[in-house]
């Protein structure tokens, strides 16, 4: 081992010595170990533990009691839980659909229009704010009597303005909008970078062949960045399924569960109702759903051959 280490300090700096070190299995294990341990400790072990706690009845204070799969059978019958699943799925679909809008904005921005640089930064600003700050901002906007949204609606002559965060019928949509707003810049930047990566010669060649801007966008640019789009769909869906912070601050899942999503349901079960076993079961279920969603999206968007710039 000591001999192998000394190779590292070999001033020769040739790749040959490096290869020799890296072919030593012991060294490889040594290098992998720290991050492996870290990942095991903070991610995989807790996942296993969540599964384990999911089999228990536990209020976080009294001793745990093994109850087998009771938490899961209760989960299947829990109407409030399925309502939260439905809300999360609606949100996942909305986030995915909104990607089309972000893509359109990115296309326009990448088209060298005037002020694109400034606009790109403007779109990114919400990303820089913390979720709690955004939540506070939108709480003010949605305030039923003094909020600017209802103020505007009243100004244009609408009576009976909605009570955005109080009406069970609108509250879910009212909390989705700030979240979409929050992440818009993120996706726009990803698409923008991908579009900028397309060699200008391809676009130019298409233009010489007489393609319109729309054709260039749909037939040339879209297929070329399809790999990136796939990634963003997974990010949007999984991100929506596990989304928590803004909803927690703005409504806490209320009123009466009207804006509850899976993650807030899990939090409320564990921390408000003091059912850590049940909360863990929800958490485990959430993990399974996210894995299935990821797998499903990869399957659906799988392409036989990837198109490359050449």
């Amino acid at each position: 081992m000591a001999a192998s280490f000394s190779c590292l300090y070999d001033r020769g700096g040739n790749t040959h010595a490096m290869e020799k070190v890296m072919s030593n299995k012991g060294i490889i294990a040594l290098y992998v170990l720290p991050s492996l341990l870290l990942i095991l400790a903070v991610i995989y072990v807790p996942i296993v533990l969540t599964g384990y706690y999911g089999l228990m009845e536990w209020d976080a204070v009294s001793p745990m009691q093994y109850i087998g799969l009771d938490n899961y059978s209760r989960l299947i019958e829990d109407g409030a839980f399925w309502a939260s699943v439905r809300h999360s799925l609606v949100f996942a679909v909305m986030s995915t659909l909104s990607l089309a809008l972000y893509l359109a904005v990115a296309m326009i921005l990448s088209g060298n229009i005037r002020g694109a640089n400034l606009l790109r930064k403007v779109y990114l600003i919400p990303m820089l704010l913390s979720s709690v700050a955004i939540a506070q901002l939108w709480l003010k906007i949605y305030h039923p009597t003094t909020g600017i949204l209802n103020g505007f609606l009243e100004w244009i002559g609408i009576e009976n303005t909605p009570a955005w965060l109080s009406d069970p019928k609108v509250v879910l949509w009212a909390v989705f909008i700030p979240i979409l707003w929050q992440y818009a810049g993120f996706y726009i930047i990803i698409y923008y970078a991908a579009l900028k990566n397309i060699p200008g010669t391809l676009v130019e060649a298409a233009r010489i062949d007489g393609a319109t801007s729309v054709q260039i966008a749909l037939r040339i640019k879209l297929p070329l960045i399809f790999e990136v789009i796939k990634v963003t769909i997974v990010l949007a869906v999984v991100g929506s399924l596990k989304y928590f912070d803004l909803i927690y601050v703005m409504t806490g899942g209320g009123p009466n569960g009207a804006s509850e999503v899976m993650a807030s349901f899990m939090y409320n079960a564990a921390f408000d109702r003091k059912e850590f076993g049940y909360g863990s079961a929800v958490g485990f279920f959430l993990l399974v759903i996210c894995l299935i969603a990821t797998w499903g999206i990869r399957r659906l968007t799988a392409t036989k051959d990837t198109i490359e710039y050449s």
């Binding site: 996942i47 899990m266 564990a270 485990f284 993990l287 996210c290």
Partner: peptide
Amino acid sequence: ALTASTMLLSLSLVLA
């Protein structure tokens, strides 16, 4: 994606 999806639940469990 897996990593991210488990961040939230691992938080409480790490403590536990």
